[in-house]
Design a protein around this nucleic acid. Structure first.
Length: 201
DNA sequence: GACCAGGCACATC
DNA sequence: GATGTGCATGGT
């Protein structure tokens, strides 16, 4: 119905990681403006962003909301990337998935969804990304409940689908597309009508 | 003017 | 361990 999504919309793996942090609880359009700002100033590189003053970074990403907190989170990630991996996403690929995931989760501002988005879409590791749309759709389909947590939902996918990067990439992208265009405000669905997305855990 | 968007950390009980 | 709250913009 939707066709291949060709995710993640970005020019580089580093841009994927930046986008993953900036899009936390935020409309993608607003994130795009922020990323365009960084590109226009030729600052969208690990070393340049790492050196950038945090106040200036916050101003540049203003459009995506929560800009003070996101500037700080971006900085935490950049510290991690530069000090641990020489500022290169590529250097993370040799790490085993579980250990790398733990490292990412230890970075302030990176939770399960952001970590998994970076792992799948930037580092190309076979991990399933769970987001608010995923939880809502599974709840609609009565495949999970509103109170199921992140790892439970993730396990449901990973125990039932072959662990392939390409498949997980497309699957999650399609869930987001479906969530945006159909599931949202579907008046026939009592789950959607209840708008559980905010409170979903 | 209200509601919403591809979360997360932290405070409090 | 569970629940509540702050963070903030731009579109509908």
């Amino acid at each position: 119905m939707y066709g291949p999504r060709n995710w993640w919309p970005a020019d580089s793996d580093f841009e994927v990681a930046v986008g993953a942090i900036l899009t936390q609880n935020t409309n993608w359009q607003n994130v795009e403006r922020a990323i365009l700002n960084l590109k226009a100033k030729k600052l969208l590189s690990p070393l340049k962003l790492h050196k950038l003053n945090i106040k200036r970074l916050a101003r540049l990403i203003r459009s995506c909301g929560y800009y003070n907190i996101k500037a700080k989170r971006l900085k935490s990630f950049l510290d991690f990337l530069v000090s641990g991996y020489g500022g290169k996403i590529e250097n993370m690929r040799t790490m085993p998935l579980p250990a790398l995931r733990e490292e990412l989760l230890d970075v302030n501002g990176i939770g399960p969804e952001t970590a998994d988005s970076i792992l799948l879409y930037a580092i190309k590791k076979p991990i399933f990304v769970v987001d608010a749309y995923t939880k809502r759709i599974l709840t609609c389909l009565r495949l999970s409940t509103l109170d199921s947590d992140y790892s439970e939902v993730q396990k449901l996918f990973m125990d039932n689908l072959p662990r392939r990067v390409k498949l997980y990439n497309e699957f999650h992208a399609l869930i987001v597309e479906h969530g945006k265009s159909f599931c949202k405000k579907n008046p026939k669905c009592d789950i959607c009508a209840l708008r559980p997305i905010k409170g979903a855990r």
